[in-house]
């Protein structure tokens, strides 16, 4: 809906001061679970380059020496921490490396809003924390808002500003401390849910074993900064 792919069922939606329109360069988008293995003879830099001008017809007219990349591509790769491996084939990269590459692709058009759908799905804990740190850093440095969807709040705990927890047809909005609590979630799920906190402040949602938690986390640059500090 934010991308302008679906119209709202009712009401009006305004994103960055105007109604959403397909193809806005102001919004960077990384969808969930993209299958990039298919692209074998395809490098990271090729993928990021598509974020820059993949929507234009024809091919990029080579105006500079062959090996040199457009500066926005280099900057986006740098910001996402993907420069080192960007000239390798996508098929040779790990899931975490691919995820950061997709982030670079979303950043290359210099967006003001970043939409990330399940950026931590299928990542191990190390890549999850690297990814969370990269997202937080990018949000501060480029002063952009990040809206992301995640099932697990923990990798994001310290960088997220606001959480919009969606479950059982209801929502709860607030800081993670306000929302991810036993009473709030029990109300949302309509059943007993407990939130356990471990020694390092990580929260675990238990109870209602057949249902899955699905917090929509929302972070804004200003508070991300506070959280990182």
């Amino acid at each position: 809906m934010l991308l302008g792919l679906l119209p709202p069922l009712a009401g009006e939606l305004r994103v960055l001061g105007s109604s959403p329109r397909r193809g806005s360069a102001h919004i960077g988008y990384v969808p969930q679970g993209r299958n990039l293995e298919a692209a074998v003879a395809f490098r990271g830099v090729d993928l990021v380059g598509l974020g820059l001008d993949g929507h234009r017809w024809g091919f990029r007219v080579p105006t500079r020496p062959r090996r040199e990349l457009p500066s926005s591509v280099t900057e986006a790769l740098e910001a996402a921490g993907a420069s080192e491996y960007a000239r390798r084939r996508i098929g040779e990269m790990s899931g975490g490396e691919r995820q950061r590459l997709m982030l670079a692709q979303a950043l290359v058009s210099k967006p003001q809003l970043l939409l990330l759908d399940e950026p931590f799905a299928n990542l191990d804990v190390r890549h999850q924390s690297v990814m969370a740190a990269v997202v937080a850093e990018v949000a501060v440095e480029q002063s952009l808002s990040v809206v992301l969807v995640a099932h697990d709040i923990n990798p994001l705990r310290r960088v997220v500003d606001r959480v919009c927890y969606v479950a059982g047809g209801g929502v709860a909005i607030g800081t993670p401390e306000e929302v991810v609590t036993g009473p709030v979630l029990s109300r949302l799920y309509g059943g007993p849910v407990e939130v356990l906190t471990d020694s390092r402040g990580r929260r675990f949602v238990v109870g209602l074993e057949e249902e899955t938690a699905h917090p929509h986390a929302r972070s804004r640059a200003s508070v991300v900064e506070g959280a990182v500090r």
């Binding site: 991308l3 792919l5 397909r22 193809g23 360069a25 919004i27 988008y29 990384v30 969808p31 993209r34 990039l36 298919a38 692209a39 395809f42 090729d46 993928l47 598509l50 974020g51 001008d53 993949g54 929507h55 234009r56 017809w57 024809g58 091919f59 990029r60 996508i90 692709q105 979303a106």
Partner: peptide, 23 residues
């Protein structure tokens, strides 16, 4: 192929993003 080149590559590797970018 020359005229389609970039959008064709884009939609081949990454249809969702290409669609969001108005291809």
């Amino acid at each position: 192929v020359a005229a389609l080149y970039r959008p064709l590559l884009f939609t081949s590797v990454d249809e969702d993003v290409a669609e969001a970018r108005r291809v």
